[in-house]
């Protein structure tokens, strides 16, 4: 593992920062959490009658699962904040697109 102390020594193609192992404790915790939420999804589907609230719960659980996969498994929680932001901020706009097109889709169904 090499590190460059002078800017001229920096080789942008082959530079690989040293990654230390953080142990497996967090990873197993995330695994049990994802498994638990999936089982909860399964239970809620049968216990609760279909409703808007149930859909909101499912989407909320989906976002929680996504947070743990991206944060712990993909290690984004431990990356620099500016890297995390350039990846996460653009995806926020998708939510707006979804809202807009669901509204428009609903309007189309009323005119059919």
């Amino acid at each position: 593992m090499e590190f460059y102390t002078k800017p001229g020594d920096y080789d942008p193609i082959n530079y690989v920062p040293h990654q230390a192992s953080h142990g497996t404790k967090e990873l197993w915790k995330t695994f049990w959490l994802l498994l638990g939420i999936t089982i909860l999804d399964f239970i809620i589907y049968f216990v609760m009658p279909a409703s808007g609230l149930r859909n909101v719960i499912f989407i909320f659980f989906g976002i929680v699962k996504a947070y743990y996969i991206v944060g712990a498994f993909m290690h984004l929680k431990h990356e620099k904040i500016n890297l995390a932001l350039i990846i996460l901020v653009p995806t926020v706009f998708i939510v707006g697109l979804v809202m807009g097109l669901l509204y428009e889709g609903n309007a189309i169904s009323l005119m059919k």
Binding site: P90, T91, I94, L97, V98, L101, L102, Y103, E104, G105, N106, I108, S109, L110, K112
Partner: peptide, 21 residues
């Protein structure tokens, strides 16, 4: 992620435009 989002957005729009009438 954008590729998959576009597919899921289309799914949502299609589904909402087929509510029972």
């Amino acid at each position: 992620a954008f590729t998959f989002s576009s597919l899921l957005v289309q799914y949502g729009a299609q589904r909402f435009s087929n509510i029972e009438t």
